[in-house]
Design a protein around this nucleic acid. Structure first.
Lengths: 118, 118
DNA sequence: TCCTGACATCGACGTTCATCTATGTCAGGA
DNA sequence: TCCTGACATAGATGAACGTCGATGTCAGGA
């Protein structure tokens, strides 16, 4: 299929991935997998996207609940998962709780899969 | 915490993520999650890395089996998962089966999380 | 033609996960 | 001081997942 001499742009990007440059260790894999697992759920993907795209970069739980046909404890559970792996930061202000995307963590993940921007 | 006016390099990258630029749809989340789920396993992460970093960009199953303390059917199962979501291409030559990383798929994922290269 | 070796499929088993209802905690207002 | 509303925690349940041993398929060599 591929000419093995010329690379498409998409191949050029992917070839620079740390994941492709050399085999990762078992320890590395064990540390990375939980991050990806936290992301590997449609609800959590939308939660992260909702928080990240929200005005001021933060969102109140009350706003997030309304975006899903799921119970409040379920949303709370998913937010906790994202918070525990470090993808979401949590801050309580009065009665409300605000979540914010941890840009560094997300960027690290992206750099791992794609080009080594870091 | 953050000054909200100045961005660290890492925030600059992450802010351009398609995931952060606007809320993704339920359909998008449903399509992306299986890809991430396929990746969200230490064994499959190492498999992908082993194949991608292998000479000629492809690896025989027999090579991969030796890298793990797992049964041959288990490795075969994980390779199937990665193949089914399109992250690995499969080619049988004689008695041996060779796997190859689908650079486009991996790049798409990276672009989704990080900067919008694409 | 039969045997061996490479890889996939099958069926089973224990664990993890997503979701729910019920309940707890705690801040702010009446 | 009590009530309400926002959010978290606890416990239960069914589905999905990772792993295994046993078995199937099939190409190549003797």
């Amino acid at each position: 299929m591929s000419k093995s001499l010329e690379l498409t742009p998409v191949e050029t990007v992917a070839c620079c991935s740390p994941l492709m440059s050399e085999p990762i260790s078992t320890d590395q894999a064990d540390r990375i997998a939980p991050l990806l697992k936290a992301l590997a759920d449609p609800v959590r993907l939308r939660l992260l996207s909702l928080v990240g795209a929200h005005a001021d970069g933060e969102a109140c739980v009350c706003d997030l609940n309304d975006a899903f046909d799921l119970s409040q404890p379920t949303i709370s559970h998913h937010l906790k998962v994202l918070h525990e792996v470090g993808l979401l930061d949590r801050e309580k202000r009065g009665v409300w709780v605000y979540y914010r995307v941890n840009a560094a963590a997300l960027s690290d993940l992206s750099g791992l899969l794609g080009r080594g921007v870091r």
